[in-house]
Design a protein around this nucleic acid. Sequence first.
DNA 1: CGCGCCGTTGATATTATTCAAGACCAGTGG
DNA 2: CCACTGGTCTTGAATAATATCAACGGCGCG
Lengths: 231, 231
Amino acid sequence: MCLPVGFTSDEIDRFDALVVHRIKVNKCKSLYRSGDSFNTLYAIRSGSLKTTVLTDAGHEQVTGYHILGELVGFDGIGNNRHGAGAIALEDTEVCALPFAKLEKLAQTMPALQHTMNRMMSMEIRRDQDAMAMLGSMRAEGRIAVFLLDLADRYRRRGYSSTEFVLRLTRKEIGSYLGLQLETVSRLFSRFQGEGLVQVEGRALKLLDPIGLKRIAGQLLSLPPAGLRPAT
Amino acid sequence: MCLPVGFTSDEIDRFDALVVHRIKVNKCKSLYRSGDSFNTLYAIRSGSLKTTVLTDAGHEQVTGYHILGELVGFDGIGNNRHGAGAIALEDTEVCALPFAKLEKLAQTMPALQHTMNRMMSMEIRRDQDAMAMLGSMRAEGRIAVFLLDLADRYRRRGYSSTEFVLRLTRKEIGSYLGLQLETVSRLFSRFQGEGLVQVEGRALKLLDPIGLKRIAGQLLSLPPAGLRPAT
DNA sequence: CGCGCCGTTGATATTATTCAAGACCAGTGG
DNA sequence: CCACTGGTCTTGAATAATATCAACGGCGCG
């Protein structure tokens, strides 16, 4: 099942009838490209995807990293054209959810409509948090946030939150975080030297999540403690 | 009217019935705060707002700048709590759109549901573009993109696209663009020196939009021309 | 007036990028 | 089997971009 809980079995049946396609996307292949006409959302059943946009200068910038259980494609609804492209980071399987049918079905299924609204809202929230992160943190903070975010997402999907394999190259991580690949590499090395993580290529162990949280909570310059709201 | 075109007059009437509140928000006052419970969206009728999130470190980061005709509050739907706060940059008037009623009304009005989906999708698109901008451009490019984006939005609302007044301070612009206020100030001065813009405090004239576009189209380092997709 | 906030500009420090070299690995073809 | 290639990753050194620190002028407002 591609949807969260809270539906009756009848509703689930009607929803399942809509999921006509299962699509396999091989590693490095595009599920869709920036500029493609939009008509379906995709739920990731296995594997992982990155989403990328083309900047004005024709440079590919990673804007998202999506794993099992997550939905991609919301950016296309606005003008029936995908703003970002989605590329498989490993052999990946997705469910295709035809959007027109989804909208129609949602009209007779308030819970589905609400779920769609919620999912888009959460995507907005995530993107805004990412913006705040890019705007306020230095390289080490960005890496720390990135690792903790991954850990949390893996945890929620039932995987280990302290030990996982990155599917992104250093270059892609850098693109995602607004850094050069060398900076990413250096910081992984430094974090390892400080005993925060253990890095072996793309295999990662978080040895000191508390320490990472401390780094993630630092800004360019810390305002006086008295002015900080108690969090 | 707070909505785009494409509705019958009957639909518009039903929609209007839902807009019970007109709210005035004085300059520097909050429309809602990060963490507030969510129940309504707001359409800006006059004035302007900034949206801000609190980072882990308790620092206020500007994530959006919204003018007349735009909607704010979508970030709250996901978990019934606002992720960002909205603060008036000048005396501002908004329509309150109770979200529960909006969702209910949308069930009998497919065009409304589609419009809501589109608006959220466009918000996602904007945020992703902003992320790409923060991740791939240097200070001068960010400023150029910021100015061109403003110009475009004012143009679409029927205002001059070459002459407008910023409602944000240098510090807020810096926060929005991931820069320090001094950097913003310096770049405004430099752009003025290069004849790109005319700056007088917050009053701006774009003298050379083409030149700004050229700057906005530059990256940290340009990839070899042969590898760039033709745009 | 005096105060706080805003904006500008200069000097300096810090950070991250850029350039460069080399190691490692997987795939490919002789 | 082995050399060759292209991609990835690491590390060092030099450089450029931006932040930080500091001083000052202007403006609005109580």
